[in-house]
Nucleic acid binder design. Structure first.
Lengths: 121, 121
DNA sequence: TCAATATATGAATATATGTTCATATATAAT
DNA sequence: ATTATATATGAACATATATTCATATATTGA
């Protein structure tokens, strides 16, 4: 009721299907969840990071390996690995001077493959 | 061979694992596919668009419905629907003055749910 | 301790993108 | 025809973000 009111406040035009709106509203996940979800997909939404993830499907790799593989500067790879690390998509282990990165989550490949299925029709 | 050479041109430090790089290189999808994949995820990587998709899981909705549901301006919803339309994630049908949007692809929910599984642990 | 190497990171820059505002288009009703 | 309404869209603005450059940190070996 109060929600319908706030809806009318925002949408200056006539709300056409109150029932549809109410039903959708009650079935939506919490705002915070949807925010987190968008943030997750945002991490996947960059060519460099997609390529990094794709490389790590094969095996763990050090920063220099990835840098060489993707023909990109060590710095930019390192920056992007930080993004992936923050999103808990990759983890790392240090071995002397070398830092090895690998995938951190089982869902990653599933998300990736579903996207691939859409893209390759 | 020539690829290793170009790799060394880019990566000024020592390439540590030639075999790992070669193996990963041969197993990566084409660049264009990875680009398209990143573009797809980029579409998912925005709170407004995620909310729109989530709303459409319930049922088709007109622009004004979505606008009211999400408490956002008609214009911004319309702009975002165009992005979703361009990405072939939603389709629409016109009925008089009203345009109804609905989901266009079966993969969408799978991608969405996999992401949700990651986010909600 | 000093030099070399692998990686990380802050600042700067360029580019991309989401929302707003104003307005255009399309359809229906009078 | 004119008006009202639902939606679309171009331009402007603000913000986010990817890469580069310079440099810092961490580790190893001499």
């Amino acid at each position: 009721m109060s929600q319908q009111f706030s809806a009318q406040e925002q949408c200056d035009t006539t709300v056409i299907h109150e029932d549809v709106i109410a039903s959708a509203r009650s079935n939506m996940p919490p705002e915070e969840t949807l925010y987190d979800l968008a943030e997750l997909f945002k991490v996947f939404g960059d060519t460099t990071r997609v390529r990094i993830l794709c490389a790590l499907f094969e095996s763990e790799m050090c920063v220099c390996d990835i840098s060489a593989l993707l023909n990109m500067s060590q710095s930019s790879i390192s920056h992007q690995l930080r993004v992936l690390k923050t999103a808990k998509l990759v983890r790392y282990r240090r071995e002397g001077k070398v830092v090895y990165y690998s995938l951190d989550d089982a869902h990653i490949k599933h998300i990736f493959d579903q996207g691939l299925a859409h893209v390759t029709e």
